[in-house]
């Protein structure tokens, strides 16, 4: 089994061709998909993260009528893999789309600078 570290929380397992949580080794979703599809997803009000002491139309926090924080967790262990601040209803971003064939080729080369887990 060869897993390649893509982010601090995500590996790609080139044998199973899955996104894998690097914290608990739990499978998420096929690696040619958006890894967020394999996550547990929650919508949070910005005031749950950004404290604002003032009661005004403009605060020390994002406006919850304009945007929410979308959090993506590993569905197995709960680690937060990513989050996005999005206007209400805006499509989720497919932010990482690795060329898997090139990744395999790179791994099989004589020298590469990827971090691989056996």
């Amino acid at each position: 089994m060869v897993s390649v570290e893509i982010t601090p929380y995500l590996d790609i397992n080139l044998d199973s061709e899955m996104w894998v949580c690097s914290t608990c080794d739990g499978d998420l979703v096929a690696c040619d998909s958006n890894y967020k599809i394999g996550c547990a997803v929650a919508e949070r009000d910005p005031s749950e993260v950004h404290h604002s002491e003032i009661d005004s139309d403009y605060k020390f926090a994002p406006d919850s009528n304009w945007c929410k924080i979308i959090e993506f967790y590993c569905p197995h262990c709960g680690v937060m893999i990513e989050n996005e601040y999005l206007p209400l209803g805006h499509p989720i971003t497919h932010d990482i789309d690795i060329d898997i064939d090139k990744l395999r080729k790179k791994i099989s080369g004589n020298s590469h600078n990827l971090r691989v887990k056996p």
Partner: peptide, 8 residues
């Protein structure tokens, strides 16, 4: 990678 944005 799960870090939050700075605030408004």
């Amino acid at each position: 990678f799960g870090g939050y944005a700075s605030t408004s």
